[in-house]
Amino acid sequence: MVTIANIDLDDGAYVEWAGFVGDVPMFATADGDVIRVEGGQTVLSIHDGLLCAELVQSGDALLTGGEDGKVCRINSDGISTVLTDLEDSWIDQIAAGPNGAIAFASGRNATIIIDDKIASEISLERTIEGLAFAPKGMRLALARYDGVELHWVTSGGSTQVLEWKGAHTGVCFSPDGKYVVSNMQENALHGWRLKDARHMRMQGYPSKVKSISWSPKGKWLATSGAPAAIVWPFTGKDGPMGKAPKELGSMGKLQVTCVACHPTEEAIVIGYSNGMILIVKIEDGQEVPLRSEGKGAITSLNWNKQGTQLAFGSEQGEGGIIDVTS
């Protein structure tokens, strides 16, 4: 049995992030509001225009960046703090690392905050289009035109540059820290095995890959960008090289717009361009429908820690909480 609780958002508001802060469902819209759902709904006005949002690693607070130049932290109780204010410069990227580390980027500049103090500031020649902490938090990956740079989170130490021609618009580490994967402007992902910087080309998508998610132990990388979830195996020592990805949740021509791996089991929740949501087991492709359709494409999907509840948002002002256990 599956139950859905639908959340009323502002008419048509684009949901940038839907998920759980602590145990409290929250929905962050592109307009800059964060809707907190506990008992009833409370609307927190956080930004004039919200560009990015990410949960801190403990799961107890949401980090947001806005068109207003502010970086904010919203706790599960709804109390928010402005961490930084760059005034009218957009905060384009935000990332969370271990022990409360935070990184954010505006244009070509990134700032790393550790223990509430600025640990390092990084300036690149090109715009920073993706940020991700390595699993142990010692290094930060920055995606930019023609490659990804790995910087130590405290100043000093040599930068490792992973080059690959073209625009890299996002970046992540595998959970074991052995691989770095970037989203590209082209319809492809690019990966590097860190120990020898070996390239991994993951191509063949009909459109850009905007959503990617690692399975909990890093065996699988689930991705959007096709009319099915494309799931790359990272089981051997060569990553996905020479292996075909699984195509899961194929629904005719319907595009997959969002994916989120279950926090404990080898299953993926998939969101589609028509608002449909389903869960699929990686092993055998068995599907369980969760939502038949909606007004717009699914933009965000996040599980709670236990993997019992799922929050979703769409680009047309829809949000909801799905209980998959009841």
Binding site: E16, L51, T127
Partner: peptide, 16 residues
């Protein structure tokens, strides 16, 4: 223009 791709996409999310 890479910056336009980013900015236009972000702007488009705020309807009206």
């Amino acid at each position: 223009r890479g910056d336009l791709i980013r900015v236009v996409q972000k702007l488009m999310r705020r309807k009206g």
